[in-house]
Structures are given as structure tokens and as C-alpha cells.
Amino acid sequence: MAMEHENISEEAVIELDGVTKSFGTQKVLDGVNLHVKRGEIMVVMGGSGCGKSTLLNHMIGALTPDSGSVKLFGRDYATMTDEELAETRMRFGILFQSGALISSLTIGENVALPLREHKSLDDNIIDIMVKIKLELVGLREHADKMPAQLSGGMKKRAGLARAVALDPQILFYDEPSAGLDPVTSAQIDQLIIALTRKLHVTSVVVTHEMDSAFTIADRMCMLDLGKVMRIGSRKEFEDLRDAADGELKSEQDLLIRQFLRGGAEGPITDRQQSSGYADDLSLVATRTQ
């Protein structure tokens, strides 16, 4: 497949510049620079707890950076008026890590919610649109269930149906395929690709699943210790993954390769050992003896 398909334009729709964020004394994001082009699928990777969800929360304007700027469609969140903010929010959809369905509404009502509140449409038209969106994620028979009655994977798919309800121009996905079976996960991947190619949607996908990442990505971005360690095309990351030991010189490359391959040995493991984790463990072991 061609690395860059024809829909990608050079214009950046999401621009993060020098975004820094601390929670208490913990610096979660440390000068993150990331530009996402219109029409591309950007996959964001990184270890658990490295700040991926925090990054997404900045992109949707739910968190404000301590320093740096976040722009969507060329507009900075910091300077938006309430109207501009509402307008911007109607132009993107987000699938939260937990689904974040409104628990007092049925699945169908959840998907209908943005349509009902933002569009003046007839009830039966809304019903049809809800059915279409739910069919897309294979949940049409479950429209009348409450979120608590769904499995984790089903909640996620319902969240996706809601995220696409207003036909957004940008879609954010926080671990769309975590907790899904391989077939559904592959279907979600295809859905992300289809939305991007056919409807020119720009997508930012946070994921741990390397198969899925390499299937959907146009470009990839690796986060580590609050910084962007590498941004590159899928091809670059594929080469890195498949590289033999001798070809990689820098520690960084080795670290990324370990992550991409999911190996138990490498710089990431060394880092944990050097932080004294193994010593602590053996200490605990001798104490309990």
C-alpha cells in the first residue's frame, strides 16, 4: 500500500507545540510537539501511564497545558470564545478509553444525543441515523439496552457509534481495540480506515496493539517519559521493527524496537532493572524467608 494516500494534505489540522503538563510534581507531558495532517491516521504509542490519554485530553480541550499551545483547525483553545469552542467540538468525535456512555440513557439514546441536541431533525430521521450508526459497529439489536448491560467491548463500540454520530472531521480513539476479540478488532481497524479514506476524516489513534497499529497507521508517534521520542511514517517504523541487532546504533532505536516487537528484553527492561526494581524484589524475598 502506498505510504501516503491521495487524501492527505500538507495542512495540519491538529497542532501541538511545546505542550507541557504536570499533575502535582509528576511531569506527564514535557514539551510535546505533534502536528497531524488533514486526512491521515496518526497512531500514538507508548507504555502504559506514559501520558497518551492525557495527550488526547489536551487535543479535545478537556485539559489546558501548563505551557505550550494546542490548535485545532488553526484555532488555539486558549483564545477560543465559547461559541468557537462549541463549534470546534461539534467537528470532532472522541472514543474514550472507557467508552464514557451516559449511564442513564440507553445505547440508542446515547448515539441520538448529539443529533437531538445539535441538529433540528425529525425524531424518525434521528431513529434511522441511530440505526445506521449502530449497524456500523454491529450493535443494532442492542439499541434498547442500558450501558451497564453491555460488555466492555460492546461499550467501546457503542462509544464509537456515538463519536461518529455528527459525521466529524476529526476522530480521536483511545485504545479502540483493547479488550475486543480479534475479529471485531480487525473490523474496527477497517472501519477506521474506511472513515478516513472515504470521508476524509483525520484520525488520532492511541493503541497498544501493534498489529492494529501497523494496519491502520499513515504515520506513527512514540511517546516516552513525557516526550515525543520519534515521529515517522509507518514504513520507517516497520523498518525499525524488522531491523537486525547490528543495524541499530542508538539506544532510542533499540527501545522503540523492543516496544514494537513486544520483547521482554531490551532497554525498557534495563531501565526498570536500573531503577532497583529487581533488588527490591530480592530484598522482599529474603525478608519473607
Binding site: N57, I60, G61, A62, L85, A86, E87, R89, M90, F92, I94, F96, Q97, S98, A100, L101, I102, S103, S104, L113, P114, E117, H118, R162, L166
Partner: peptide, 19 residues
């Protein structure tokens, strides 16, 4: 109810939908 909605990210979701 509202507290639980906060911890489930439901409030954040509402805001992200411009509600």
C-alpha cells in the same frame, strides 16, 4: 449520580460533544 458520572468520564464526554 453526578459524582459517578464524573468518575466515568461522562461529564467530559458531554463537554466533548459540546453539551
Amino acid at each position: 449520580e453526578i459524582g459517578t458520572m464524573v468518575t466515568n468520564e461522562e461529564i467530559k464526554a458531554l463537554q466533548a460533544m459540546a453539551l
